[in-house]
Amino acid sequence: MAELVKTLSPAPSPGSALGRAFKSFSLLKESPVGMIGAGLVAFWILVAIFAPLLAPFDPLATLKPMAKPGTEFAGGGTFWLGTDHLGRDILSRIIFGSQTVLIYAPLATISAYVVGILMGLAAGYHMGWWDVILSRISDIILSFPVLVLYIIIIATYGASGAVIIVAITFASAPGVMRIVRGLVLDLRSREYVAAAQTRGEAAMYIMLVEILPNARGPLIVDACVRLGYVIITIGVLGFLGLGLPPPDPDWGGMINETRKMAMIFPHMTLFPSIAISSLILGFNLLADGLREVSLRD
């Protein structure tokens, strides 16, 4: 008996949660589209991690202005993708730029999710006044055209990494809240929630332990899509000159700085555009694959 009990410890270990996540990703094999997406995302993550090893040059060093792709550098090495108007190697800037994007975009998305999930849980589970107030607040925020909202915030508080993360959280959390609220409204009427209530569980326990884990499927898919949007947003802000202050490489900013020369040197804008599009495409395809797989079984 005791032995049986020992071997059958039901405590959910982090290992099993990891295993589950791994299992759902291994299911992704069934969706070729999802696999391409996962490949693109994995590619950029690896590039970001190993950026110092991969980049042939210092991304900030001015070496040889306006070199075409494939030009050999006198000091050794090749500008595979050419250089920009200040003579910085575009390939190295794209490689290091992936770090910027893959740090700020997930940070902003996670922060939007934390706020949105808490709001959605409170509104969907407690209903009543919580719901009325939180829903109205998010309706009002969502009624702003997104970019107008960003421009106002950044015009007021200036451009910096922290402001961008706060602005994205502010603008995206209401959207996350709507999704979470919808899921919670559905899940809260489940009998296992009633069972938890009838054994006197606290509201916080029910929300976080009984409800939230069952909403994870749609939320993971949504997070991938939203991550794509956040990357676009960061790119757009960079492109409009409202992004991270130079000289750190930022894909949107790279396009903005060189777009006036696009007529003569299309490579300066083309390659960063390809980079950012491929990363967003990766997240969108991944989301689509996950959605397809989750609907199957």
């Binding site: 059958l8 039901p10 959910p12 489940r190 009998e191 296992y192 069972a195 009984e210 884990p213 069952n214």
Partner: peptide, 17 residues
């Protein structure tokens, strides 16, 4: 409860519940 597919939380083990 009534609905067997609804009475247990799908995210947790039987023993845990």
């Amino acid at each position: 409860f009534q609905n067997p597919n609804d009475t247990l939380n799908p995210s947790h083990t039987i023993g845990g519940q």
